[in-house]
Structures are given as structure tokens and as C-alpha cells.
Amino acid sequence: MKDSVLHHPSDALLVRFARRELPLGMSVIVSAHVEMCGHCRVRVAEFESREMRDWNAGQETVQAPDLDFGCMIKRITSLPRQSAEPAETFAAASQDKFVKGLLLPRALRQAADGLRWTRLTEGIHQAIAPIDHESRCEFIYMAAGASTPVHSHYGREYTLVLQGKFHDELGSYGNGDFLSRDASHEHQPASENGCLSFAVLDRPLRFTRGLPRLLDPINRLRFRSGLAR
């Protein structure tokens, strides 16, 4: 039996996910993890059923809105229904050069269409996914043997391993692992056999706007070498 996912989002994050309270980019990365992780599916199902109970409990207290139901019902039922045969649900595997034949979690499929990759440094590639105005979402590909310079992040960064493995000072991460790192972490990720991951920076871009570092091609990484000596 293969190892399963070892690193998960916190329950607090899963609760906010189930309540639809997270920003879009965050919702996307948590959803992708949940699709890959049986443990978190169980947790989310439990949180969802709590929400359900509240929903059902609240119904007595609210006054019926003044809606013209009859008219709405008539309009809706005049429209065609979808046939019982579900549409072809196999998504086409991405043709992207780094995503290759991989079937991504649903929440990422559309975003991975037509990615434009930028080489950040030897063996490290980045492609921004246009998901959200409130967070920064990107795919990262590390080629076999690649490692990034030591860096820390501006805001909190969430990373989901989509395929392959990488490691840093704190541990090693494989398919489906979900990591959360804040500005206090300094690390140097490296991958022996290559690794595709998806990352979301939860900090709104306005916090970094105007910083000259944004002009750096590796604009979300702060390099020690470039700063200290």
C-alpha cells in the first residue's frame, strides 16, 4: 500500500472552506487537496453536515419573502431539462508541457488551460493561474535535481503537491500533501525527481505593491544573497 497524504490543512481552515468563507484562491487549493485526500473529505463532510443542521434549524425563524413564486416556477419549467445521460465527464488531460498527461483535481483544470511558464532560475518554472484578485495563485514546476535559493515569503503561502516529491529543511512532501508556510519560515526546497505543485499566496497584492522587489523576475521570493551581502 502506498503512503497516503501526510500533511493536511488545519480543521479551522477546513471549517472555513465548508462555510464558503475563504477567498477564491484559497478555496481552490483546499478543494484540490480535499479531492486528493480521504482524511480531509471525511472532515469536510462532517463540517458540511453541521452547516446543514443549522440551515434546517433556521428555517422557522425567517419570514417568507415576498416573491412571485408562481411566475418564477412557470418561467423555469418552460425551460428544457438536462437529459439523464450525464455529459462526457472525462476531462481532457492537459497538454501543458509540465502538467503533461496528468488529470488535475477539478478545481484546477480550467485554470491550467493555456499556462504561460516563466523560468525563474535553473530548473524552477512558474506559471500564474488567473484565478483570483485577492490572492496569488501559481503552478510551480521543479525539474529533477533542482533546488531554489534559500528564501522566505512575504505573506502566508499554501502549497499543494500535485505530482512528485520535494523536500526542505522541515520535511519531505509527496502527492496531495498540503503545506502552510508563513513569513517566519526560511527554506530551500529541492526535488530529486521533479515535482509539480500549486501554490497560493493569501496576502493581497496591495501589501507588496510598490516594492522594487516586485520587479525581480522571482518576485515573490526574497533572496538572502541579494539582500544581505
Binding site: 464558503r20 477564491l24 478555496s27 481552490v28 478543494s31 479531492e35 486528493m36 480521504g38 473529505r41 450525464p86 465527464t89 477539478r106 478545481a107 484546477l108 483544470r109 480550467q110 485554470a111 488551460d113 493561474a129 488567473p130 484565478i131 483570483d132 484578485h133
Partner: peptide
């Protein structure tokens, strides 16, 4: 931008059984 729909994030169960 709409490059992901809510049904992709919180599936309705009609499609993917992980």
C-alpha cells in the same frame, strides 16, 4: 475572473468520486 466555478470547488456529487 471566472476560470473556476463553485461546482468545481464544492462538487455536487454527480461526477467525481475520489
Amino acid at each position: 475572473p471566472i476560470c473556476v466555478s463553485a461546482d468545481d470547488i464544492w462538487p455536487l456529487g454527480e461526477e467525481t468520486e475520489p
